[in-house]
Amino acid sequence: MAEIQIKNVAKSFGAYQALHDINLTIADQEFMVLLGASGCGKSTLLRIIAGLETATAGEVWIGGRRIDHLSPKDRGIAMVFQNYAVFPHLTVFENIGFGLRMQKLPNDEVTRRVERVATLMHIEQLLKRYSGELSGGQRQRVAVARALAMEPDVILMDEPLSNLDALLRMEMRAELKGVLAESKTTAIYVTHDQVEAMSMADRISVMHQGRIVQAASPIEVYRNPSAEFVASFIGNPPMNFLKATPAGDGKWSVAGQVMDGPRADRPHLQFAIRPEDIQPAEQGLTATAKVVEPLGAHLLVTCEVDGSLFRAVLDSDMVVRPGETLTLAPQADRVRWFDPETTKAVA
């Protein structure tokens, strides 16, 4: 059992506060992804859990044991680094067995475990090589195998795939997900790539400027973003926003169109809709097409609605010309509303 609890963790580097009051619970065997733009504090949080960085405040618990005062080796964790950190003076075999040797396991046990994870990561034919003789992808496999060989309670990964090329990244993504699910380890995976996050995670924690903005399942984060930041950060093309003014009795006026909305007493709200939740219709928002991009599977139309940029993903059979005026209807149950003052979602 390795549930991770992060309680009120904060971190300052001198005057700069990199993390603000982080609270997060990660269930046993859960695959948690920390997602956010570069510099938002993902690595810092991961390194605090690993013990490579000391929190300024707060506690970290793993499996019911407080571990934030322990050194990295006593925390029951293993880590995979972005630049692989494969030891150049050791063979692949000795790299994978490094942690096991430190535990003073008998030789045959080391061999058995190294060979098992090497087979799992498909590098059994590379065991005699040195890291200088490996490709980036192979080094990444060695780094993951080395972490798995420790049979840790928790495996921590900091952008492990970001140095690989796109095709290899997609391949490794699926493979890593399978291997980790099988190993029954609790995993925390840091990435700035939302596709990676969506495809691998059981749960995503979206981070922004040193805070966790939302922690939920990928589909929840996508469908019901809790704040404007999440809505605009996740999804490609991103969500559309339009200004809405009250029209009385839970109705809101968006670009001259009156719609049902939340019964909120605010001077205005942000209306939000994903580009793929928009259909051409008889009645709806009046949009002027600006750029038309046929992407094969569908048609991406960038338009202007009420002076704002507005993107729609339409059926690829449609014919739209730049300058043409369209009437676009948002799918009612997919519309979301945000309070511009707090930037939080309003139900």
Partner: peptide, 13 residues
């Protein structure tokens, strides 16, 4: 790279 040392720390050093 400092990561080599950090990796060693997480591996029991």
């Amino acid at each position: 790279p400092i990561e080599l040392e950090e990796a060693a720390w997480t591996l029991g050093c």
